[in-house]
Amino acid sequence: MAAAAAFFGRVGAYAYFVGDFVVAVRRHGVPWRLVLQEAYSIGVRSLPILLIIAGFVGTNLALQGYFAFKPLGGSRLVGMFVSLAGVRELAPIIAAAMVAAKAGTEMASQIGVMRIREQIDALEVMAVNPMAWIIAPRLVGIMLVLPALTVISTFMMVGAGLLVSVVQLGVPGEIFLELASQGISAPDFLYGQVKALIFGLIICTVSCYFGFTCERGPEGVGKATNQAVVTSAVICVVLNYFLSEVFYGGAH
């Protein structure tokens, strides 16, 4: 019971936080000169790990697709399997997970340190709204970068799948690509971009929320960082199901 109350208290506090942020941005605007720097650091930090993870998810999609369809005589369908699973589902969520793991944790820990070292209070006292100054550029930055990372993640995944299929499994490359492009259509890319924007919104606001509410003391920042990545990953994954249901559910 107490745990449930604490949980809903947290949800309410987060909702207030987001509301305050919206008011702050409407009043003070976005400090645009900071956006590029944030976008760059989010992208650069997340890209290497994203390339590795997306690539090796692609390899396994190819292997499993091949093993699943081979007994049915459809080993050529591996291209379709990789593109369908990659473009629609795994590329967006993996890009989001990596950004949550790298950029999100960094937001939470940086802001947590700012809270503990009274820098957020100092901004307030200098009559600079901390929410507009700290969160807004990070939010715009992540919204610019995560869709791009999602595209990169998609190509990396399908590319790795193609490589494994051709080199290891002996599926001809043209066949792979032909079936891969049959499996998906233009709206699939669009839906991936919509997912990326929604995930970006969640990761940024959740991570900043935990940073802003960081407790003092030696464990404060670590705890905030941990809660930021766990919470934003769980929300994104659960939301991903509902988004896919909305986007693709009509095709039963």
């Binding site: 009043r27 070292r117 009274e118 820098q119 209070d121 100092a122 307030e124 006292v125 009559a127 709204n129």
Partner: peptide
């Protein structure tokens, strides 16, 4: 907030560790 910020702009504060 606008009135609060207007007042704060006429104040300066030194935090314990500089912030």
């Amino acid at each position: 907030e606008p009135a609060l910020y207007a007042a704060r702009r006429r104040m300066g504060m030194l935090f314990q560790d500089g912030a």
